[in-house]
Simulated assay, not measured.
Amino acid sequence: MKTPKRLLPLVEEGMIDEVLRQLMSGKEATVYVVRCGEEIRCAKVYKEASQRSFKQAAAYQEGRNVKNSRQARAMQKGSKYGRKMQEEVWQNAEVDALYKLAAAGVRVPKPYICFEGVLLMDLIGDGQGDVAPRLNDVALDADTARTYFHQLLHQVVLMLGAGIVHGDLSEFNILLDADGPVIIDLPQAINAAGNMGAESMLIRDVDNLTQYFSQFAPELSGTQYGKEIWQLYAASLLSPETPLTGKVAAPTKMVDLDAVIEEIELVRQEAEDRALYLATRNEK
């Protein structure tokens, strides 16, 4: 096929020898199958921010590091330079996450380089010469669904041990090769310790998996693995060997209703005092 414009720099630099075909086009990138010497890999071409349906929400940006204070100020102001830096941070987040997760034993594609907004990485195959299918494209029996579900829970635990939460995990960004699930699409990955939304995102990731696999194994419905994993992590009790039950004990501490009512009353009083102050000032 004709070499796409965004891939020309990698061809000219000798990183890609031939573009074979387009594999898919998603909400954040277009992926191509490419030949690098004797290896078949994939090139993920990130779309410009204006073309992505998945926006760079502040919730995903929190806790990400930038090179210096000048870049941080530019990103906050939204200048042209700041937007360029924001794009680099967004793209590099996936590269950094892939390297960290691969080192932690998580099943993710092996990355090679991110150059001019293009991520070159391993192509995940099905073991029979074809591209691995996505999880949502495969019919599962109950036993296989249970196996994949628990394999993915283990991957989530390994990710959390590496300090990373996927943030958008679902059946649409999991591939199935000959050895089981492989997790992909990580530009929105967040810092588990540095992002205030990490707990809710991890629970949502696991709930997405639970909802999907419970179609095939109904007993998974109603389990609370996400909450259990986070509670163990927050208590420094989580390891890859930690047994999981899917159950979370109900809170035993009684809610202090008097304290809650007092807090509401304080907020109401502050609002009334402020309104009175503004009205008095306007009369002067």
Rank of each mutant, 00 (worst) to 15 (best):
R268W: 01
L232M: 05
L10F: 15
A259T: 03
G180P: 03
A189K: 02
E48D: 12
Q155A: 13
L176N: 10
G222D: 04
M254N: 10
G226W: 07
F54L: 12
T223W: 01
I190G: 01
R73M: 11
S170M: 08
K84R: 14
Y60L: 00
S79W: 12
K253L: 05
I40M: 03
E88T: 14
E241I: 01
D258C: 01
S170Y: 09
A271V: 13
L123F: 11
R64Q: 14
K55A: 14
P218R: 09
Y233F: 10
M75G: 03
N92L: 14
L209W: 07
F54A: 14
G117W: 13
I164D: 08
N92A: 06
V206P: 04
L140H: 08
V11Y: 06
L123N: 00
I164G: 13
A102M: 12
R146P: 00
A104Q: 15
E116G: 12
T245V: 05
S69N: 04
Q86P: 00
G26M: 07
D179P: 00
Y112N: 10
S239W: 02
A72Y: 02
C42R: 04
V138P: 00
I264W: 02
D177V: 05
E39D: 11
I203G: 05
L257R: 02
K110N: 09
L7Q: 07
V33R: 04
